[in-house]
Every structure is written in structure tokens, then in C-alpha cells.
Design a binder for these strands. Structure first.
Lengths: 234, 234
DNA sequence: GAGGAACTGGAGGATGTCGTCCACTTGCGT
DNA sequence: ACGCAAGTGGACGACATCCTCCAGTTCCTC
């Protein structure tokens, strides 16, 4: 009876899902460490490196984030939001063409600044709800951005929204190939791509992939849960 | 004294470096198997998979090709020659612009057709002599191809030869990201890139990487001998 | 301040890959 | 025919990474 009266109905402020304070502190450390390590070394680093950086045991990390996918989602939630926001901002830009170009550059720059994010952007994580929400939002806004730029007569009419992920894949290719050795090369690629998007340059293009195909491609190798299944046959 | 008179001074025909015939047969099988497996699964497949496909023990494979790099070089020697030849053929094309475009498409198509070659083309293997000769030849011819297309007023003046490897890196990005799920997407990327190369479309571009930088980038992770050195520090 | 639930770290079994080593086999010269 | 150098295959030790499991610790509640 009295239990409802305890003076602690509000205090559960910053605890995520009722974690004990020490546990929550560790969770934070883990996410921070993951962000750093992923940014430096990509999504494939050994989990133990992250645990070490966070100063916790692997057991702790695994209990909180049982799969790599979940950890990735947690680590990049913020960046995904920033990503969605960038799209919104691009829409705020008065000049439609400027908005479009600025957007492409900006997103590619985000890729360039974080080795893990490079991959995340060309991949899909069905499990991560908030994550996907941001992505969907961004995609919807991007659609408008594209229409606007086409209407202004600046963006070629045969540009499709699927071209953007394709550009990101291309950019990812340059980024991974050049690494630290030639870290600004991507800018030039993006320069080429943007100029190719100009309506004035337009010549016919090969067909884009069906959206469904591209989605499937982005799903490939999607660190989900208990992955690693596929293998061994013959 | 008589030994010089033995009736077998010529017969050493197809033996490579005086291998015993059975050994040479195995060598062939290994190279063939490597070609197949690399094409299907990329350069990072376990060596044992190749040995298995070739029907030989790993020991045999390792004796003949002690490092992955050497095996890769042997497996792709032919393709590298074909690559060099493609450049030559592009020069034979009477229309300079046609020659240039056809070349870019062709090389990118070669990448698309072989998962291993995708990587090989954006990488450098200092150890593989014949290999490098082809690459150098191709590069020299490409230079001419570019000049010719520029002179014809079709190729933008600020195109530099380093842009080609950059395109290949971008293409590689799309190829690896799309895989079998959307296997024609690369064509569209190449369409964009080529149109961006047209002189008429030209707007200023960010600077290209210094040749030396790019070279360094292509050298990264270059399955050389006794690689794996770098690691462990902190 | 005591009891128990929540949480912790890291040892350790499982798996996959590498590259070596060596007892056995085989082609080839005589 | 024979002998041996050349060649062979695959077991094996080393290592990296994964993920689980649990004895011990820490926080929270009453």
C-alpha cells in the first residue's frame, strides 16, 4: 500500500530503463568508447577493443549489447539524427540547387569524418527503431529536396532518389581505398558527381536499380543478431 | 662429356623454371583455382579454400606461393595483360572521345565481372614484376588517350590521370556494396562519371590528390610478404 | 546495516585462419 | 630397375576473435 507513496516516482530521471546507476555509467562509457573506436577503425573492430577502451569487461559489454548491430545502432544514433537534421536544413536553404549540392557535400563529408559512419550510411539496421525513423525522415525530406531542385530546372530530370545511396557507396569506396594516405580525394569525386547531376549536362543514363534491389543490397551483411549463421556447406 | 649430347635440350618447353611435370601440373591447378575463387569471393578468402578447390594440400600451395600477394599476382597476370590491351585498343578507336568513354566503361566492366579484380585494380603489387609492367604500360597509354580526348575538345581540361584510379575506387565501392543484390547499379554510376568528364559540363573541381599520395594509398594493405606485421601496440 | 538482486570482469571453450614441418610418395636420370 | 632429389598433403601449434558462464562485488531497499 505504502509502496506507491515512496518519494521516488520522479527521481528515475536519467536512468535508461531502470538501470542501476553504476550500470548506466558503464553503458555510457561503452557507447562513448564504441563511437571513438568505430570512427577510427570501422565497424569491424574486435568487440574487446571497445570493452578495453571503455574500461569494462567483455561480459559487461555483451550483456548490454548482445549483438554488434545493437552496439552500432546505439553508437550512431546521434549521428543519424544529425543526418536527418542535415536534410531538413538543406530544405531550409532558399536556392534549391544550392540546397541539393550542399546536402550531397555535407553528407559525404560526414562519411569522410567517421570510418564507421561511412559504412553505416550504406547499410540498414531493421532492428534499430529510432535509427530507422531518422533514416526514413531523411529520405522523405530528401525526396522533396530533389523535386524542388528538379522543378527549378537545375537538377537533371532523370535523377532518382536511389542515386544518393549509390553516391554514398561510391564515396565509401574512395574513402576506404585512400584512407589516411590521400584523405581529400573524396572531395574531387563528389565534385564530379554533383556536376553530373546538373540538368545542363544530362545525357541518357543506364537504369537505376529497383528500390527493392537496393534495399536488399543495403541489408547485406547487416550485423544483425546471431549473424554468422550462413557458412559451411558443400 | 656426354651429358651435353643428351637429346633433351629443347624439351624443357613448358616447364616453368624447371619444375617437375607433376609439380607444374599442380601449379596450374592452383592458379586456376585461385582465379575462380578470387573472382567469386574476393581476395580475402582463406588460402585453404583455394587449396581445396585445386585438389592439393595447403603445404603444396604455400611452397609454390609463399604469400598471398604472390598468388594474387599469378592469378591475375592474364587479366592485367587484358587490361593493358584494352588501353591499347582504346587508342585504336578513331574517335578520341568514344575511345575514352569506351575505355572507362570497359575497365569498370572488368571490375564488375571479378570480385577479386575489383580490388586488384585499386592496389599495387611492387613484387610482381610482369604485373607492374602491364600496369605501367596501361598507364602510359592512358595518358595518351586522355591527351587525345582533351585535344579533341571533348574531355574536360582539368581531368587528370589520377582521376581514373579514383573512379575505379568509387566503382569498387558500389560493387562491393551492391553485390549480387543489385548487380547493374555500377553502370549508372559510370554513366554519371563519364558525363561529368565531358568538357561541356566542366565547372571547377577540388584538387586531385598528389600522384604520390595516391600511390601510397594504393599500396596500403598490399598483401605483400610476411604482412600482418603491423598490429599490437598501445 | 543487512540481505538480496543487479551487476561485474575475465577465464575459458569454440571456431576459424595461418603457415610450418615432416614422414611419405613420385618423377626422372642413369 | 633403382635411388634419390623433388614434391606432396595434412596434422599441428600459434594466434585472433567470439561469446558464455559464474564466483565475486556493488548498489539499493527496508
Amino acid at each position: 500500500m505504502v509502496m506507491c507513496m515512496t518519494p521516488s516516482p520522479a527521481p528515475r530521471t536519467s536512468r535508461e530503463a531502470g538501470l542501476r546507476v553504476d550500470a548506466e555509467r558503464n553503458r555510457q562509457r561503452i557507447v562513448t568508447a564504441a563511437r571513438e573506436v568505430f570512427a577510427e577503425s570501422g565497424l569491424e573492430v574486435p568487440i574487446e577493443d571497445i570493452a578495453k577502451r571503455a574500461g569494462v569487461g567483455v561480459g559487461t559489454l555483451y550483456r548490454r549489447y548482445p549483438t554488434r548491430g545493437e552496439l552500432i545502432a546505439a553508437a550512431f544514433e546521434d549521428k543519424m539524427t544529425a543526418y536527418a537534421e542535415a536534410t531538413r536544413q538543406a530544405l531550409a536553404e532558399p536556392d534549391p540547387w544550392q540546397g541539393f549540392c550542399g546536402y550531397v557535400e555535407k553528407i559525404c563529408a560526414m562519411q569522410a569524418g567517421d570510418r564507421g559512419f561511412t559504412t553505416v550510411l550504406t547499410m540498414t539496421f531493421p532492428m534499430a527503431k529510432r535509427f530507422e525513423a531518422d533514416r526514413d525522415q531523411a529520405f522523405a525530406d530528401f525526396k522533396v529536396l530533389v523535386e524542388r531542385a528538379k522543378a527549378a530546372g537545375k537538377l537533371r530530370a532523370d535523377f532518382v532518389t536511389e542515386d544518393m545511396p549509390m553516391f554514398l557507396m561510391a564515396n565509401a569506396g574512395v574513402l576506404t581505398a585512400t584512407g589516411d594516405a590521400a584523405p581529400d580525394t573524396w572531395r574531387r569525386l563528389v565534385g564530379y558527381l554533383i556536376q553530373a547531376c546538373a540538368a545542363q549536362a544530362a545525357q541518357p543514363l543506364p537504369d537505376p536499380p529497383a528500390p527493392r534491389q537496393l534495399y536488399k543490397a543495403m541489408l547485406r551483411a547487416t550485423w544483425q543478431q546471431r549473424e554468422r549463421r550462413a557458412r559451411k556447406e558443400k
